[in-house]
Amino acid sequence: MTLTLKQRPMSHDRTDPEAALLARLRAGDDTAFEELVRQHQEPLVRFTHRLVGDLDEASDVVQETFIRAYEGIDDFRGGSALHTWLYRIAYHQAISLLRRRRVRRFLRLDRDEEFTEAVELQLVDRHDVVADLEHAELMRHVAASVEQLPPRQRGIFVMRHFEALTHAEIAQIVGRSEGAIRAGYFHAVRKVRAAIGAAGLLEDEEPS
């Protein structure tokens, strides 16, 4: 069995081109801002899409992220890399959206949708999953197991596993200690494993 397919962390040190871009941004250069949007939109969309689960909403979150970045560029002190700062804004926007969604569910405004999801899950026979489900169905379960994570844990899991950010970077983004991030990530993996295991998706896996 091969190990996880996660990407290796990139070097996130602020480079000279980034410093130059920052200087142009602070000078109010609109072309620099458009450059920033073009450079960073894709990873941010990927990240927020994993987090909120809907591409349109992810796109809205990223737009809002850039607007806030534009308005707050003078407050950016450069204590972290530019992309870490953008992730931080996007993360908080996405978490805010997830919280609003949870409140909506709490207020039972999304009751019908939730009910449908619950029925769909009940219809799946645990013991037949591995044998019968096609790849898409399998992935639906895996996606559901990630989506069921509490917002913060999901954010940490997505940043670590899919975006390959370091624990230190995630700590900067979330505003918690590295130890707390590590613990949060481990909790998340345990929960995903439990959910996948409960669906019988780990039964035939051979240890490496």
Binding site: T4, L5, L138, V146, H161, V189, V192, R193, L202, E205
Partner: peptide
């Protein structure tokens, strides 16, 4: 490992 592979 399998859990993370599936997620990947």
């Amino acid at each position: 490992v399998a859990t993370l592979e599936l997620a990947s």
